[in-house]
């Protein structure tokens, strides 16, 4: 028994290590590249022989990156807020009310989630140009909300369905108005769900490259993922790999910290909707 158990443990450990290495090597590679000097960039060493902060200093001195970071944060935060507020209301209605057109609403939101975004880029480009939204913040916020809403509605309605309806009835019987019942009973219970959804939506907006590259043309609204592709060295022959890597690390770190910090809540959130009880 004991040997077979330790054997199983060893097997699992091996599998875990393989998965971790597979997932983390590219990330560590980028981190490593970002600390290398221009001369050692292509030396094929995993651990830099010469460490430098120069790449980081470079990206923060160029206006291009800071402006892109501001765009990214602004656009992602606004899109997340709007999507979560709308999604909360829609999900609550879907979970609690029986209204005409409920199935259609759910079906359409599923349709949007499945629709290939690439096929919408060209029409969106034309529409935004004629509406004057091209290369503006709303020009990105609007499509982000559209594509984040199904995600928000699905996650949140699973959460709301988890909250027993009887709690609301109990609150009513205890003398609460509908607003009080929502504020003091439903909202605190739904908070982890709203939070999880907000993080997922934020990551979706933060990571988007397709819309960011297609619907922007200047630094006024270009987000970091798109801006990265425009990084270039000071001359045509200079390799921007170091600065691109540094920028990639800079925009990844907040997300990693965010997720690590709220890991337990996100995991609880993702599973609590899936399994009853």
């Amino acid at each position: 028994m004991a040997t077979s158990q330790s054997g199983a443990k060893a097997r699992w450990a091996l599998i875990d290590v393989v998965v971790l290495v597979y997932a983390l090597v590219p990330v560590l590679w980028i981190v490593s590249l970002s600390f290398k000097t221009k001369e050692t960039l292509a030396d094929k060493n995993f651990i830099p022989r010469e460490w430098t902060w120069q790449n980081y200093a470079d990206i923060f001195t160029t206006n291009q990156f800071l402006r892109a970071l501001l765009n990214s944060v602004g656009i992602a935060v606004i899109a997340t807020l709007i999507a979560v507020v709308l999604g909360t209301m829609a999900a609550y209605a879907i979970a609690r009310l029986d209204f005409p057109g409920k199935r259609v609403l759910v079906g359409v939101s599923l349709l949007i989630a499945m629709f290939p975004q690439v096929s919408l880029v060209t029409p969106l480009f034309e529409m935004e140009r004629s509406l004057g939204l091209f290369d503006t913040w709303p020009g990105l916020i609007l499509p982000y909300i559209t594509f984040a809403l199904p995600l928000a509605i699905y996650t949140l309605s699973a959460f709301f369905r988890e909250i027993p309806w009887e709690l609301e009835k109990a609150a009513k019987m205890d003398g609460a108005t509908p607003a009080q019942a929502f504020r003091r009973v439903i909202a605190p219970l739904a908070a982890p769900g709203v939070f999880t959804t907000a993080i997922l939506v934020f990551i979706f907006c933060w990571n988007d490259f397709l819309f960011a590259i297609s619907l922007t043309s200047t630094t006024s609204s270009r987000t970091v993922p798109a801006a990265l592709s425009f990084f270039q060295g000071s001359s045509q022959f200079e390799d921007p790999t170091g600065t691109v890597s540094a920028a990639a690390v800079v925009i990844t770190v907040p997300i990693i910290l965010f997720v690590l910090f709220f890991q337990r809540r996100i995991v609880a959130g993702l599973t609590s909707g899936a399994v009853k009880g």
Binding site: A170, M173, T177
Partner: peptide, 20 residues
Amino acid sequence: RAPKDRDIAMVFQSYALYPH
């Protein structure tokens, strides 16, 4: 009248206690 204005208390099958 809304439930809150009827001054009646109710005990539910699931108890409906506020978990938080």
